[in-house]
Simulated assay, not measured.
Amino acid sequence: MASELSGKIQTVLGTIDPSGLGMTLTHEHLNIDYKPCFAEPPAKYKDHVNLPLTIENLWWIHRYPYSCWDNLELKTVQKDVTNELKFFYENGGRSVVDATTIGIGRNLTELAELSKESGVNIIAGGGYYLGYTHPPEMSTMTQEELVQGMVHEITAGADGTKLKCGLIGEIGCSNDILPNEKKVLQATAEAQRQLGCPVLIHPGRLPKCPAECLRVLQEAGGEADKTVMSHIDRCLFNREQVLEFAEMGGYLEFDFFGTEVTYYQHDETVPLPSDIQRIRLIKILAEEGFEDKVVIAHDIHRKMQLMNYGGHGYSHIILNALPRMLVSGLSQDVIDKITVDNPRTWLTFK
């Protein structure tokens, strides 16, 4: 079966020639239910969790975005997502990787509808997210069963349909990789070995985490050159850190573009960068010869990030970040590598 996919990219509507991928966001969520990742707010705000996402409540929701139930899903606002994807297409965007996996609401039927209505290629992710979203049976599932499931999602269909995933991930890992997360990551490596497919990993939030995740994958037979490490911009913050990871051979994904906050609710010790700081790190990587190993996205997964709710939306990179990259000294050739060539190379099956 891998031979049938070799040299192709698999979207929810079928395979396409890599030349048709175009400008690509490598990590978004279009139909997510992020409520399993709800975070309790401070006690003084316990009565705020059911507040609607309105302008009157944004003062609080911006500070505690994972404590507002109304903010943690996109399934009830699919018309807004469709309109944003159309806007993305009108502004030159062509493809989006939907990184929603089992446990946080993945639904390939709805992704196919979004793709048909917007004209945007959507590549769906297979596999599992963080340990606390795993199904109850995960502890008793064997690695072989996990491999078979991931292969099935790509070769036969997912979510009870004949619609197929085009990559594995985002595969979730905690700061200290949990036993079940490690088992899933090792199964991912074997499925990647069998299929020659792209992989997307969600590392923990410590500087050590990206390298640890990639090592587990490689030791289990996975390939760095077909693997994107998500959320680099909330793990690695300086020249030495990004260059050290780049030497390992995987892709570095800066996927918090448009998220510029001082207080990161998941871990207030994490100094989230601004878009300017992200661009500076990307420029360092390009100057050191790693422009072939950088991809970018927004990781939109909360309602407040959509344009209709006051957010930057899926077109922020096109409208704002790419022009800023040019002003910052990155050439158009490098920008094209980051947004077109690198996603194409990564997403094409071996």
Rank of each mutant, 00 (worst) to 15 (best):
V96Q: 07
S331A: 10
G119L: 08
T140L: 13
P207T: 08
P323A: 12
R234W: 01
G221A: 10
A39R: 09
Y34E: 02
P179D: 03
P207C: 04
S174L: 10
Y263P: 00
I338T: 08
M325G: 02
G204T: 01
F88H: 05
E73T: 01
S95A: 15
G125Q: 08
G169C: 03
G166S: 00
D159Y: 08
L272H: 11
C209T: 11
E223K: 10
L114I: 11
L330Y: 09
S6V: 09
L285E: 10
E212W: 04
G313F: 13
S174M: 03
H316M: 03
S139H: 07
M150H: 12
K8A: 06
E247D: 14
I168F: 07
A220C: 12
K162H: 14
T54G: 08
C213S: 10
T142D: 11
A220M: 09
G329P: 05
T262A: 14
I282R: 13
D233C: 05
N57E: 13
T161Y: 08
C165D: 03
K79S: 15
K116N: 09
R234M: 09
H316A: 01
R302I: 11
D267N: 15
K337I: 03
Q186C: 14
H266Q: 11
M304W: 02
G313R: 06
P136E: 14
T109F: 00
L163P: 00
I279F: 00
R63I: 12
R324L: 15
S95K: 01
G22S: 06
D233W: 01
K75V: 15
